[in-house]
Simulated scan of single mutants.
Amino acid sequence: MRLIPLLLLLFCTLAGADEARFDKLTAQQVHASLPQLVLVDVRSPEEFAEGHVPGAVNLPHDAVTDYLHLLQGQQQRHLVLYCRSGRRAGLAAAQLQQQGFQQISMLEGDMPGWQEQGFQVQK
């Protein structure tokens, strides 16, 4: 019986491991550096349509390789990924790193954090 809580704890720890490997940038840092960054929203197309960071590219986390063409020629640029909670962004970041993208950061607080700072949202 004790094994189940331990396995659950291990799973929860590993589920957040991908996100922890990447630097985090605050919404203020991202906003101040927008022209130099490539913003990548890894939420579903429906979530993206409801509102996203202006200029972001939608690259659903569960279809990263299918959408890589949207990042063609961007391998040397700094990518900043976000979703709703960070979990999907961490998964997508790990996949992008395997595809040769090296400058990857996460938006601290993800989309809710961006909105809480009062920054513009594009629909």
Rank of each mutant, 00 (worst) to 15 (best):
E19Q: 13
Q95D: 07
Q102Y: 06
V30R: 15
R88T: 06
L71S: 15
L107C: 08
Q72M: 10
Q95A: 11
P60E: 13
G55V: 12
F119K: 01
F11D: 01
A49G: 11
Q102L: 08
K123L: 04
K123Q: 12
G16I: 03
P54W: 04
Q95F: 00
I104P: 06
F48R: 02
L70H: 13
L68K: 08
D18M: 01
M1Y: 04
Y67W: 09
L37C: 06
V42T: 09
Q102W: 06
A94L: 05
Q95M: 07
M106P: 04
C12V: 06
A89D: 00
L71E: 13
V40W: 12
E46L: 08
A63Q: 14
V30C: 03
L37D: 01
C83L: 08
S105Y: 05
A15K: 11
I4A: 14
Q72R: 15
G90Y: 00
M106R: 03
G55P: 05
A15D: 12
P54K: 07
L91E: 07
R2K: 12
E47I: 03
P35K: 02
V40K: 05
D41H: 11
R84M: 01
K123H: 11
L81M: 10
Q99A: 10
V53C: 09
P54A: 13
H61C: 09
P5F: 01
Q76I: 04
Q75I: 14
H52K: 03
L37G: 10
Q115S: 07
L6P: 08
G113Y: 02
L39D: 02
K24L: 09
F48E: 00
M111L: 10
E19I: 11
F22I: 12
F48K: 02
G73H: 12
L71G: 15
H31P: 02
A89W: 00
L37K: 03
L107R: 08
A15L: 14
Q97M: 11
Q122V: 04
I104Q: 04
W114D: 03
S105P: 09
R87N: 04
Q120F: 02
L39C: 07
H61P: 03
Q28W: 07
L68P: 15
S85M: 04
V53K: 02
E108Y: 01
A94C: 05
H52N: 07
V121M: 06
Q122T: 11
R21S: 09
A56N: 14
A92S: 03
D41L: 06
L14M: 08
H31Y: 07
H78S: 15
R88N: 13
L34N: 00
Q95H: 06
Q99N: 04
G100Q: 09
C12L: 14
Q28Y: 12
Q117M: 06
G90E: 02
G109E: 03
V121A: 08
N58L: 10
A20Y: 07
E116P: 00
A92Y: 02
L71T: 15
A15G: 06
Q95T: 11
A56I: 10
V64T: 01
E47F: 04
N58G: 12
V64I: 09
A92Q: 00
T26A: 05
Q29G: 07
G73I: 15
L34I: 02
C83N: 07
A49R: 08
Q117L: 00
S85R: 06
F119A: 00
L81H: 13
A93V: 10
A17N: 05
R87T: 02
A92R: 00
Q76D: 11
